[in-house]
Design a protein around this nucleic acid. Structure first.
Length: 558
RNA sequence: UGUCCGAUGGUGUAAUGGUAGCACAAGUGACUCUGACUCACUUUGUCUAGGUUCGAAUCCUAGUCGGACAACCA
């Protein structure tokens, strides 16, 4: 009924929104075009999600568009498997790209641009080996030395460059360099490489090319070719910006994309480097990029994180230029908030202790009605079986309860959710003194969970019927897999030694029979336990549940 | 003993010379057929030192601390 949200309730613009808003207002641009430019050399992770939400979100907010561009200029590392996974992940996150492009689409144009630069005397073919050139480049505090090939005549460079392309030389024999400034305090301007000879099979262009452009040459020109207005990247490219602009100036291109940088996402207890994630996969510490413990988009999807939650998270973390480490608790909060509204409730017992209802008829089973989501009547109800022998969670019973423990203990009455009020009469132990069974009674008048006489209980606990309940595999993941924050690991120590061995515990859980019908990637809240998601690879009748995130527990034993 | 970038509660992020706000986290209480959710309340902050100004988180100067940069990776 209320009016659409007006200006006064709008969030203040972040610095990128401000820049775009200004550009639009002062007429610098009529339409904006952004791009998300991953290299297809790995799977996307939560850090990429920030960039995706930024680029697509900015475009959407200002009625512009966003391209998906694969920055595939280094064929050695790249593969179609990664292209496919990236497309799937971006789409799953809820974004549609205006155009799908590949830097490799522009290889010919880029080559032509490179010839232009050579003809203008702004690029030259250099014979130096990487080691020799490193020597010339020097250190930031001292000017470098010029390559002896720097002033090679343009015709000679052009000839060599054409022969590089024609495949006349072995890999690494020559490199094409931009002729900029060997004395610049910015090392990236000390005659950076533009092209290298590399005989590698490219996943799109095959063996057409044996020379490939470097990022610094390809990126701003790809932006230019597509007509990108705002080229948004992470902070480590800040020092590349003068180069970005240099190439555009040198070629006097019709479009002038601008590069803006933001601080990348860091998450507590989370590996966020593609290089390290690749190691986890290649060394077999995890089961592939889509392992539910991985902070990859596909891993989180499989674990049960929702796209809406990830988008919300990216919105909440904001964007700025200062280094940051976001508390994982915020991500988990976003996941809980989304799942709380959408996930069906179910009862499951992870660590069972048997309960026998002494005054309940042997052999009888009754089917009780339970709401699928009490806060959402639309979610409907389901039937759950109840009989004389049940399982409850071991931690929901204490023989000698402290003051603030409200759940089951000898002599105390609690509610079994959707069922009856139950009173514990007797504790049965084994030789070792461990509790193995609880003898209880029920009050038939409290069927469904309400006492006609109006008496109250302090706690409601979950349970599963021992006869009709079903065992399933439940994977209890810890919060990703680092024991400590990446920053807290001592210098020089391998991050592998920081992996959390408790990050995956598999155990048998007892669940309502209806859960055997769970569909892959279907979400549930196991009441009072946590949010779970049927595994992507689950089979009907035998699902495996991954724990997405625990419920918050406000009871803390003293 | 270089260049560039940055610095606001525990963690993030606003305030664009005029009341330091919001979220997460933490704590207290209320409610509850989930000790969840929800609701109410509370604790905690402008790196330092100078300067400009009626007034500075914001502008200036110096310092301190943190980060990035020396692939034929992106």
């Amino acid at each position: 009924m209320s009016e659409p949200t007006s200006e006064n309730t709008e969030k203040p613009l972040n610095f990128l929104e401000q820049i775009i808003s200004d550009d639009l207002q002062n007429g610098k641009h009529k339409n904006i075009l952004t791009r998300f430019p991953p290299e297809p050399n790995g799977y996307l992770h939560i850090g990429h999600a920030k960039s995706i939400c930024l680029n697509f979100g900015l475009a959407k907010k200002f009625n512009g568009k966003c391209n998906l561009r694969f920055d595939d200029t280094n064929p050695e590392a790249e593969d179609v498997e990664y292209v496919d996974s990236i497309r799937e992940d971006v789409r799953w996150l809820g974004f549609e790209w205006a155009g799908e492009f590949y830097a490799s689409d522009y290889f010919q144009k880029l080559y032509d641009y490179a010839e232009d630069l050579i003809k203008k005397g702004l690029a030259y073919v250099c014979d130096l080996t990487p080691e020799q050139f490193r020597e010339c480049r020097g250190v930031p505090t001292q000017p470098g030395k010029e390559s002896p090939w720097r002033n090679r005549p343009a015709e000679e460079s052009l000839d060599l460059f054409r022969r590089m392309k024609a495949g006349e030389f072995e890999d690494g024999k020559y490199v094409l360099r931009a002729k900029i400034d060997m004395a610049s305090p910015n090392l990236h301007l000390r005659d950076p490489a533009m092209y290298r000879i590399k005989r590698a099979h490219h996943h799109r262009t095959g063996d057409t090319w044996c020379i490939y452009p470097m990022y610094d040459f390809a990126h701003e020109l790809s932006d230019e070719i597509e007509g990108i207005t705002h080229s948004i990247c992470t902070l480590e490219f800040e020092v590349h910006r003068p180069l970005y602009d240099w190439f555009l100036d040198a070629l006097n291109t019709p479009h002038r994309p601008r590069q803006y940088e933001f601080a990348r996402l860091n998450l507590t207890n989370t590996v966020m480097s593609k290089r390290k994630l690749r190691r986890l996969v290649e060394e077999g510490h995890v089961n592939g990029w889509e392992d539910p413990r991985m902070p990859t988009i596909s891993g989180m999807r499989r674990r049960g994180y929702t796209a809406a939650a990830i988008r919300d998270f990216c919105e909440r973390i904001g964007v700025a230029k200062r280094e940051n480490i976001i508390d994982l608790a915020l991500l988990e909060h976003c996941v809980r908030e989304d799942l709380n509204q959408t996930a069906s409730r179910a009862m499951a017992v992870l660590d069972p202790i048997k309960v026998v209802i002494e005054n309940y008829p042997e052999g009888q089973t009754e089917w009780l009605e339970a709401a699928n989501n009490p806060s959402d009547p639309q979610a409907g109800t389901r039937k759950i079986p109840f009989s004389r022998e049940l399982y409850i969670e071991r931690e929901d019973f204490m023989e000698d309860p402290p003051k603030k423990f409200f759940r089951l203990s000898p002599g105390r009455e609690v509610r079994f959710r959707w069922a009856y009020f139950i009173t514990c009469k007797e504790v049965v132990k084994n030789d070792k003194g461990e509790v193995v069974e609880l003898r209880c009674t029920y009050d038939p008048a409290t069927r469904g969970g309400d006492a006609p006489d109006g008496r109250k209980v302090k706690a409601t606990i979950h349970w599963v019927c021992a006869q009709n309940g079903k065992p399933v595999q439940a994977r209890l993941f810890d919060r990703f897999f680092l024991k400590e924050n990446p920053d807290d690991v001592p210098e020089g120590m391998d991050f592998i030694s920081n992996l959390n061995p408790a990050s995956l515990v598999e155990k048998t859980a007892w669940v309502e029979p209806s859960l055997l019908e769970a569909k892959p990637l279907e979400h549930f809240q196991f009441e009072r336990v946590g949010y779970f998601c049927a595994d992507r690879d689950s089979k009907p009748g035998a699902p495996v549940f991954n724990r997405t995130v625990s419920l918050k527990d406000s009871y803390k034993p003293a």
